[in-house]
Design a protein around this nucleic acid. Structure first.
Length: 290
DNA sequence: CACTTGACCTGTCCGC
DNA sequence: TGCGGACAGGTCAAGT
């Protein structure tokens, strides 16, 4: 569920909250969530200060004053929540509506010198964080194959079209979910941009016309930008660096709207299965033309 | 190589 | 009420 907009909203928050803070202690109960050895953590994380927080695709990189970075993938249910020293005595916010941390989903806790905390929560344990040499991050297999950032200057129509063409025999939805075609689109924004471009998710890529590809290119950018503006999508789990939910779902045109009327034509939105994913579609304005 | 499916997990929801 | 099973979906490994 955290896709590009959600991860970007978390990045913005962390980049405002973390730089300059010095790590004092680390608590981790699940080796899968944070596989580095105690030796590595003691040597390269404890005592390090945060320099900046970057994002590439759905991956966060918390750069440290050592040669290392804390690299984080939230996968489906991961959260990175910061609690400042002024709001709590170790995880007890004054606002009673705010969840007390740590909770049952907390996998890793970082404590800073000023006693502020960063919690890595992850109900389903698919996510991970790990210490990596900053210079070696780009050598990860994922970074080697991942496609262009859709909100960056490198995401031209020509590049998009070229990469799409390598997946011409699969469905357009599977192609949009393929991180080597473009970075950061997941289930929510695939459905949303396909509706906006009036392309049926099950259409084979080779059947998607040039005009439709151009519409898709434009709508992917628009949908991602709108979602970042709205603080991302909170379907069930997602919260930003301050533990707050996003509001994009209220603006969604098809996602989670099965049984409701299409905003464009009034037809009932249906939920089907495409690319092994729950897929929301208006069968009247998103026709398969073949 | 292109493409699809299953595995990784746990909480929630639905039907009986 | 309790319980089993389906479902949620990002990425990688293994399959066709």
């Amino acid at each position: 569920m955290p896709e590009l907009p959600e991860v970007e909203v978390v990045r913005t928050g962390l980049n405002r909250l973390l730089p300059g803070r010095v790590v004092k202690s680390v608590l981790s109960d699940n080796p899968k969530s944070f596989p580095n050895s105690k030796n590595q953590i003691d040597a390269y994380l404890i005592g390090a200060s945060v320099v900046s927080v970057e994002r590439r695709a759905k991956v966060l990189m918390i750069h440290l004053s050592t040669k290392y970075s804390l690299v984080v993938h939230l996968k489906m249910t991961g959260q990175l929540v910061f609690r400042g020293e002024q709001e709590f005595g170790a995880g007890h916010p004054t606002d009673s509506l705010v969840k007390v941390l740590p909770d049952a989903s907390t996998r890793v806790q970082l404590q800073f010198e000023d006693d502020s905390m960063l919690f890595f929560n992850d109900q389903r344990k698919f996510g991970w964080m790990r210490l990596l040499v900053t210079q070696e991050i780009q050598e990860l297999p994922f970074f080697q194959k991942v496609g262009p950032e859709p909100l960056g200057p490198e995401f031209t129509f020509e590049i998009f079209n070229t990469r799409l063409s390598k997946r011409s025999n699969t469905t357009i939805k599977a192609a949009l979910l393929d991180q080597s075609v473009l970075a950061g689109v997941g289930n929510i924004y695939a459905d949303e941009s396909l509706w906006a471009a009036k392309v049926h998710p099950a259409t084979r890529v080779r059947e998607v016309s040039l005009a439709e590809r151009q519409a898709l290119h434009k709508e992917i950018i628009a949908v991602l930008k709108l979602s970042i503006e709205k603080g991302g999508s909170t379907d069930r789990n997602y919260v930003n660096a301050e533990g707050k939910k996003g509001s994009y779902i209220a603006f969604a045109k098809v996602f989670r709207r099965e049984g409701e009327a299409c905003y464009r034509c009034g037809q009932e939105i249906v939920k089907i299965r495409v690319a092994s994913r729950g897929t929301h579609v208006c069968n009247r304005c998103q026709k398969i033309v073949s």
